[in-house]
Design a protein around this nucleic acid. Structure first.
Lengths: 222, 222, 222, 222
DNA sequence: ATATAAACGAGACGGTACGTCTGGTCTTTAG
DNA sequence: CTAAAGACCAGACGTACCGTCTCGTTTATAT
């Protein structure tokens, strides 16, 4: 429910204003009235959540600690969010909000661009500031289908769409089979990389990224 | 430490007998003497752990519940295992112990065999009895490098080796490039499948398995 | 601290109001705020303690059992009391609260009245319902100076004062030496009796009580 | 039972030899054979018990700690003693064993001698090395009639007998009533003192001891 | 001298309770 | 009527000991 509120806030998939949806929620009994919600507390909670998940990791993070750091009563968190996961997710979401559209480099040569992208991803995975929160989020996703859906809709989808746009451009340039399933193609490229990092199933080097692109493109070309 | 004991039990990497290693451990101070360990309690604990992780999930599983279900004092768990994770991991390990070698079907046609294997994997992922524990284990692996290493060594390695053996056979039959990196090939085949299941990033159907094999093999052939 | 609260409640030795002292305690850090205390829980705990100490005896009584019987979290006990002894003591205190003043019989003849009182005490000591808790309390007092002080202040003092009042009356009637140390006189009379019972150093009969009074009064008369 | 063994050892109240009683015990099934008992272990246990009760107090003393300190298996303690209390009591007993008879000073003047004795007792009570163990023992006696009996028989009786002997001497000298109940007289003298110390019911000074003697003797003289 | 049976040290076992900690709910007070 | 503060019920945590029960290993008769 809370996360629905947050989605209203970002305005995806609905034309209703904040004020309207607040009034709508008001009609359903037993729920707090969002129009009365303290924006200051909300921001303090999300900031505290972000900081703490970096300092302690997701597992050792407690609602109690978030409330204390944010200078907020525990009930204020429980009132608006359903779980630790939801709070942290919304905190990440606010942080990673890309503003508007993502555009990937397009040099005209797909192989060059992909190798660049994949090497960049490898570098990103090696960043310790990225490591903790993203691992935490993924661990939660594994056990929480609701969170998984949210993640794919709000965080993964925009990035994936940008990547697919680049692939479509390659299709138009005759560098990819015209009937290629782009979702599948993306998975072929990224899943091995992601899995190596997430499950630590092997070393993650720029050379590995290159091999992956080479081998995959052999299957994807017309 | 306990898990090392269990590896002694399965005889990996050492020629020493149980009796010998028991006496050796005896010399190191402050550690319980494995030779006195109750095999009955050990089994009851692992069974209880396996059952409970299925019923409750890893997060809601408590040492206290394992002890109660196993009819065992809590101290008996703390004596031999260092954490909830270790107990559950060993429980899985005992469960999935393949006895001896794993041999995969070899019809002579790689594509046929791979599609069969991948469809079987898809079916396995749909089994609710498999779902809970494996998700739990993977969630732990994400945040625990030690556990990740153990998982790859004890559980994944034997299976992967069997799969690579099948790929080697295909190489000999001229169905795969002779200089192919088999680890990479395995990742190309399995990572997309595994990721769809683990992170719920898309539907998992037999047809999907087929497409995956088709597309991948295009890149792997000589 | 709790027991200090209870003293506030009974109004001994302080003119400050409950509200005042609550606010004062509020200022000292790390301590629970007594004004928020649940009176219902407090009563349930004391009742459970009283029942259980009768059923099991003090030694076999556990905080855990009190909490369970009272339908209360263990922390609620640890928050307000420092030990099993304090809880049980306050339970006794609430029970034995004499409301107002104690008045002892005054027939005009000290010897008669004392023999009556001492025989009554002997009878009380023989009551099994009295035995258990009072032995438990005394055993604790032996090892806990704080509890000893509390006992003398809250439980013994009022009774002793009533007894001394009777002795003063006898002094006025010329039946006791006018310069007699009344505390000492009380000890002479009661300590032998109490010791026989508490340490089981001899049989406790009405005749013994009489002899005690006879012999003691020989020393106390003018 | 164990304590009976120890009484056999000291030869109180029985004519049977050690060898005889050993053989007698042998006949009864399920009991350990005292003739095989390790004197070295027994001594180590009693010494450890004595040390630990001083260091930790009786309440915090554990059988496990005694066994560890004595370098002895726990079962060896449980084999020969029935409870922590019995072990500690026997440890005290061995310590306080007066060898043979106790003789108190006899100057010819009872008042002088009593005041000296009582002042000495007051001083003894103030000794911290005496305090801990004796409080512990008394606390146990309160709740354990068997231990109480043992205490009076083995530890208190010899001392009391010596005191009564001094009182008899005073009777012969015409300083006490000839028909005086000596047990009662002792209680009159000592119970108030003991109670002040044990239950901390008042300050314990040499002057208090004097007043006690003065007042009591007024009642005991012919 | 040797067998044999008991006591021994060691310590694992099923348990109970400890005192602490956190989670999510309920209550009180202030604004 | 929201929000902060925090007490509340609940129950898991990891530890300490309980008293019982094997294990091998002395040790001390009783052959």
């Amino acid at each position: 429910m809370t996360i629905d509120n947050s989605s209203d806030r970002s305005g995806h998939g609905t034309q209703s204003t904040d004020a309207e949806s607040a009034r709508a929620a008001d009609r359903s009994v037993g729920r707090p009235n969002p129009s009365r919600r303290s924006e200051q507390s909300r921001r303090a909670i999300l900031t505290a959540a972000r900081e703490l998940v970096s300092e302690l990791g997701f597992a050792k993070l407690s609602i109690e600690a978030i409330a204390a750091r944010a200078g907020v009563g525990k009930q204020t968190i429980y009132r608006w969010w359903g779980s630790k996961g939801e709070v942290v997710f919304e905190a990440f979401l606010a942080l990673s909000d890309p503003g508007e559209g993502i555009v990937l480099p397009d040099s005209g040569d797909l192989e060059t661009d992909l190798k660049y992208l994949m090497r960049e991803t490898v570098a990103e995975f090696a960043d310790p500031a990225f490591e903790g929160p993203v691992r935490a989020l993924n661990a939660e996703i594994i056990n929480d289908p609701k969170l998984a859906r949210l993640y794919h809709e709000k965080m993964a989808a925009p990035v994936d769409e940008a990547k697919k746009e680049r692939l479509r451009s390659a299709q138009r340039a005759g560098q990819l089979a015209p009937d290629l399933d782009l979702d599948l193609a993306l998975e072929l490229l990224y899943a091995p990389l992601y899995q190596r990092w997430l499950l630590r199933s092997g070393p993650l080097t720029p050379e590995y990224a290159d091999s992956l692109v080479d081998l995959t493109l052999r299957g994807l070309r017309p």
